[in-house]
Design a binder for these strands. Sequence first.
DNA 1: TGAACTTCTCTATTACATCA
DNA 2: CTGATGTAATAGAGAAGTTC
Length: 201
Amino acid sequence: MSCEADDHMVLISQMYPGFYTKMIPQQGESKPRRRRKKNKGGDDGISGMKKRKLTAEQLNLLEMNFGSEHKLESERKDKLASELGLDPRQVAVWFQNRRARWKNKKLEEEYTKLKSAHEHIVVEKCRLESEVLKLKEQLSERDKQIQQLSERTEGGPTNSPSSTLSMEVIEPPFFMEFGMEGLGWPENSYVQGLEWVNLYV
DNA sequence: TGAACTTCTCTATTACATCA
DNA sequence: CTGATGTAATAGAGAAGTTC
């Protein structure tokens, strides 16, 4: 069986099988479960047994055992049962329910963590989007300047492009590197830019 | 090899106890 | 009394091991 450390590594999808089947009902599922009869206090001595609360002492020992190991081997179960004066079946049931509670708690914690991480990512996305807008504005400002410069020098050949101009043609691939090609930079602008620069070489 | 059986775990649910 | 909540106990399904 899986060790305790593995329990902490369980993937969300594996942790939510019941959750997902509830969220996305599938065909052919949901067999109605048989209803349990009410406890009327029958004379067989079993059906009439009252549900009894475990004492604080019993719970302490059970919790201690659960803390050291979530699984319960039959040997340990019998030993624990005799120490507590309980039926081994009761000990098994307690561990079963305790594991379920532990798992629910873990899921809640995981959900809280994921939610907070998601919120941070959304904030960062907004920040990056506004930065992209700012950079685009700067870029279009530079384009205007280049346009004005080229109009001024129109008609007469220039010796060489300034260092500023050579930086301009390098920028596009820089953006591409970060996967921002879909953010408005005209396609082939790098090639067009090179051709444009070639006019002045 | 495979069917039948056993034993264990899990999830979902029920029933009961307790409390505000 | 009543509804909400916590939890012991049960039901049923599936996985893995054992037996024949």
